[in-house]
Amino acid sequence: MSLKTKYLGLDLSNPLVASASPLSAKLDNLRLLEDAGAAAIVLPSLFQEQIEAEAQAIDDRQIYANSSPEALTYFPSAASGPYGVGPERYVDLVRRATEALEIPVIASLNGSSLAGWVDYAGHLEKAGAAALELNMYHVPTNLMETGQDIEARYLEIVDAVCATVNLPVSIKLTPFLSSVGNFATTLVTHGASGLVLFNRLLQPDIDVAHLSLTDVLELSQPAEIRLPLLWTAILAGRTPASLATSTGVTTSADVVKCLLAGADVVMTTSALLRHDISYMKTLVAGLKHWMDEREFASLCEMRGMLSWARSADRSLYTRANYLRILERYADA
């Protein structure tokens, strides 16, 4: 039996990829993930705010360089990210990870404008990253900003990054777009080699006792797999881009679902944080067991079997199925 697959042109031993998380910020954890069966690893995202903070810190130091050496002590170092990895340390993490691991290391950039992205994309390529993931994160609070404005900004970033590096570039999309399918295919025409479905936007809660916002990040729940599963199935076989299904992947059965929908790889973070890194072994073993029971010799035999393109009843992915679900619920 072969679990081999391709993602972004990279040859992988299996379809399980460790997505960006605090686990992938430490070299020791990266080695453990590789030993546990991860076929590739996405490092934590380098955030736009970190890049801008570093650029501002450099400007401040240059302004005061000739005034007094002591003045430099008043300026803080460039901001570190949520995992304690600032821009310079992030590039170093990429370099050390690629030297230490046999599996591909994918770097990640997170932002919504061009600020520093092109330069850092080049640095990450030189550091040895096998691919680059652009983590598109933008909450449109400006009520005058249109969907076309947001899409145009994303395309500008993709154009600039793809023109700068020779690495394959994947786009981690938000599901909150006016037309996911159309924009996904447009990204491919602008140079994207892969699509990650989907990014999770931070959704703050309200503390009614203290009249304040709370920003506790909750791990994804199993039910959240439905949305990325739907769009994986709709896009599979209809775009040349590699497809990675992410969010809500909890069990080996979820991995199987994503592959049947047409995913090239399946990404998980929450499951590893809930259990531990060794849980990756459980996911890989569960996939092998499922395939063995049904006598599938390779992933290509099962991949996309239940995608929209190969479905005998495409209404299951459309409004008609919605009506049937409501009717069954009403009759229960």
Rank of each mutant, 00 (worst) to 15 (best):
A163H: 08
A115T: 13
F183Q: 03
A130D: 10
H210W: 11
L177G: 02
L167E: 00
W117N: 11
D159E: 12
I157Q: 10
E133I: 02
N135V: 03
E133T: 01
A115F: 10
A160E: 03
T141G: 00
P168A: 06
Q148T: 13
D149I: 06
C162Y: 04
A152R: 12
P175G: 02
V169S: 03
E125A: 13
L177P: 01
G122V: 03
E156Q: 14
A115N: 15
A209Y: 10
F198S: 01
A127P: 01
L177M: 15
D205H: 07
I150V: 14
S113V: 02
T185R: 15
A131E: 00
V208W: 14
N199D: 03
L202G: 08
Q203D: 12
N199E: 05
G191I: 01
K126Q: 12
L167C: 04
K172Y: 06
G122W: 03
P204S: 05
V208T: 13
Y120P: 01
S170H: 04
N199P: 02
V196Q: 02
F198Y: 01
S178V: 10
V180R: 04
S178T: 12
I157Y: 06
L195Y: 02
V208Y: 14
E145W: 09
A130C: 09
T164K: 15
K172A: 04
H190F: 09
L213T: 10
Y120H: 13
V196K: 08
L213P: 08
I206P: 02
P204F: 03
A163I: 00
P204D: 00
G128D: 03
I157F: 04
A209G: 04
H138D: 09
H138M: 08
R153V: 07
W117I: 13
L202Y: 13
V180S: 02
L177T: 04
N135Q: 10
V196L: 01
L132T: 00
L173A: 05
E145T: 12
A129P: 02
D215L: 07
S113M: 05
T189R: 15
L155P: 01
